[in-house]
């Protein structure tokens, strides 16, 4: 039983990084596809499109920070907590990355013909970023209460 809890603890430590990386890569890929399509149709504004493509890459950074915060000796006492916090923070980064990528694609699609709405069209993507920041910050806050090896917190 202890071995399982230890394994779950390690999964929890690495999950935010791995799932954040998947979310970022899928998100960047979706936004990138829209940028490539829009560049076929427009004569300018390429830089803005490419800048937007990079927006979902923040989730892997959040994942790395959460991973380092959780990184400690895994014990039967803290394995469950590491698993819960790490996995769910990772899932939040994964889905935020994918949906932010779609949102960026919408923004690129909308602003290719109406460049003046570019700033406003990013707002939904920024809101999604906000939700991921909640997941990130509270993962750090909650992880402060996980007992360290030897019973301390």
């Amino acid at each position: 039983m202890n071995e399982l809890v230890l394994a779950l603890g390690w999964i929890g430590i690495y999950s935010p990084m791995a799932l954040g990386a998947i979310g970022s890569s899928v998100g960047c890929s979706l936004a990138g596809a829209a940028a490539c399509g829009a560049m076929l149709e427009t004569e300018s504004g390429y830089g803005r499109f490419i800048g937007l493509v990079a927006l979902p890459s923040s989730f892997v950074i959040y994942g790395i920070v959460v991973m380092f915060t959780l990184n400690r000796e895994v014990t039967p006492e803290n394995g469950g907590a590491l698993f819960g916090i790490g996995l769910f923070a990772g899932l939040a980064f994964l889905y935020s990355g994918i949906w932010q990528g779609r949102s960026c694609a919408d923004s690129i699609n909308a602003s290719k013909e109406k460049p003046e709405i570019f700033g406003l069209s990013i707002a939904p993507a920024a809101i999604i970023e906000g939700f991921a920041v909640f997941a990130f910050v509270f993962a750090l806050v909650v992880s402060a209460g996980i007992p360290a090896a030897g019973g301390g917190s």
Binding site: S29, L30, A33, C36, G37, A38, E41, A105, E113
Partner: peptide, 15 residues
């Protein structure tokens, strides 16, 4: 592949 459709739709001007 969803990327194909995203790229295609983004490359089409609005009708």
């Amino acid at each position: 592949d969803p990327n194909v459709y995203i790229m295609l739709m983004a490359s089409l001007p609005s009708p």
